[in-house]
Structure formats: structure tokens, C-alpha cells
Simulated scan of single mutants.
Amino acid sequence: MTDPARLAIAVANLFEKRGYRFETGILGQDTIPPWLLAQPDAYLPVFLRLAEELWRQDTGARFGLRLTPDDRSLTGYRLTGLFHVPASIALLAVDALLERLATDRVLTFEALAREVLRVTA
């Protein structure tokens, strides 16, 4: 199993090294820092679930995500495990997802919501 805390660090590094910014459109909170986005109780579960769907479409396989309901998390879920793929595969899929969602390396809630709706439709 991949440790969620270590995966969070890797995803935050991916955001920083690739130059992605998550713009909120909220006055006073223009961007969300990568370290916060990538927390297991923030947006990491969403990014991984969407990345898993891209991976499933390409390979037919799933990541083996363990998402646990958590009332205190930002999205209602906390990532508690990643089982059936190495962290490197999950990171590649997250990178592909970010490239798909970003415009000029900028991500928004709207782009993320569109992708969530596309996957859940």
C-alpha cells in the first residue's frame, strides 16, 4: 500500500514542478497552495478518483483507492490507501488529468466540476 501522506507530498511536488496553479475565483483566497490541495483530506481523493477513471479508460484497470467518508474533510472523503498500482502510475495519471483540466497551467473549480460531472454521468 502507498502511504497517503507520501503520495500527498508527491502530488504537491508535481503541482509545483509543472507550474500548476489552482485559482479559486474567491476574493481574498485567489489560489490554493499545492501542499493544501494535495492533502489526503482535501482534493487528493478527487484528483486520484478522476485520474483513476482516465487510467481505467486506457487500461481497464483500477487503482485500488480506499476513500473513507470523513465529515471533517474538505470533500467529505479522506484518502486512506492506494493499493493496486505503484505511486508512480498514480502520479502519471494525475499528471495526465491536470494537463487535461488546466488552461495555461491554471486549474479552476469549474474545470474540476466539469470533469467530475463527465465521470459520474
Rank of each mutant, 00 (worst) to 15 (best):
P4L: 02
G19V: 04
A5M: 08
R72K: 15
Q57Y: 00
F22Y: 14
L107C: 06
R56P: 01
T31Q: 09
E115G: 13
K17P: 02
F109W: 10
T31C: 12
L74W: 05
P69N: 11
L101M: 12
V119P: 02
D3E: 13
T31R: 12
R56A: 14
E99W: 08
A8E: 01
P4I: 01
R78T: 11
A12L: 01
T103V: 11
T2H: 05
R66N: 12
A121G: 10
Q39F: 03
F15R: 00
T75K: 10
T108S: 15
F15K: 02
M1I: 08
H84Y: 08
D41L: 03
T103H: 11
I32G: 00
A111G: 15
L92A: 09
L48S: 02
A87C: 03
L48G: 02
L82W: 00
V46I: 15
P4S: 08
A96Q: 13
M1A: 15
M1S: 13
A93G: 13
R78L: 07
E53T: 10
T108I: 02
R72M: 14
F47L: 15
A61P: 04
V106P: 05
A8M: 04
G60D: 04
W35Q: 01
P33M: 04
R18E: 12
L7I: 11
T68K: 11
G76Y: 06
N13S: 12
G60N: 10
L92Q: 10
R105V: 03
E52I: 02
